[in-house]
Amino acid sequence: MHIQDGFLVAKWAIGWYGAASVFVAKGVYDIAQRSKKILMFKPLLGLISAAVFFMSLLPIPVPILGTSSHPAGTPMAAILVGPFISTILGLVALLLQALFFAHGGLTTLGANVFSMGIVGSFAGYGIFRLGRKIGLSLWLAACLAGIIGDLAVYLTTTLELALGKPDIQGVSLAESFFGFLALFMPTQLPLALLEGLVTGGMVSYIAKVRPDILKTLGVLEGPDLEVNHNEG
């Protein structure tokens, strides 16, 4: 979701910028550090960056409902390159979309980075790590990360919108929150499932074709690669 210019009062617009800037600074530092250590990190970052831009702009039609929406892409990116670096990829995608496609705005960039970049990344990454810890397969852990990461993005956006214009025409925060949530969720639920399938599929594909990349990135641990090509 891209919040448009003018939809947040100044204090919230600035607040979200401030909150996002901490994560962005750490992301820039991480990119510099990891690029020095891992030779193929920059090409990989380019690929994932393009994927995040594409996924977060692509309007996917939802059957029956007749509406469309887009996935986030940041849960997948966070699994592969870490949540702080994924935040930077979200920032780049959102900035280009705000400048060229009227998706989001510059005053609301901080809020959009916070929801899609930070919450999407950390929710996805956290679920993936938790899933692996309790013994879920690589595909299932990544799939759940995609689903929950996607929904977390839209819940955060809903909260940002509800907070952004307090006490509009006597509408309470709760009414506003559930009003926006009712607009998002019917379309977003099936798309979250799709994002889960794509995230699980992508991570499993890399594990199958180049497991060494996942080991280098710290996605797979231990001397023995735990990839089961028949899992499913």
Binding site: P63, L65, T67, S68
Partner: peptide, 12 residues
Amino acid sequence: TARAEDKWQGTD
């Protein structure tokens, strides 16, 4: 098969 009158409008 979509039923919406204004089809394929984005949630945004």
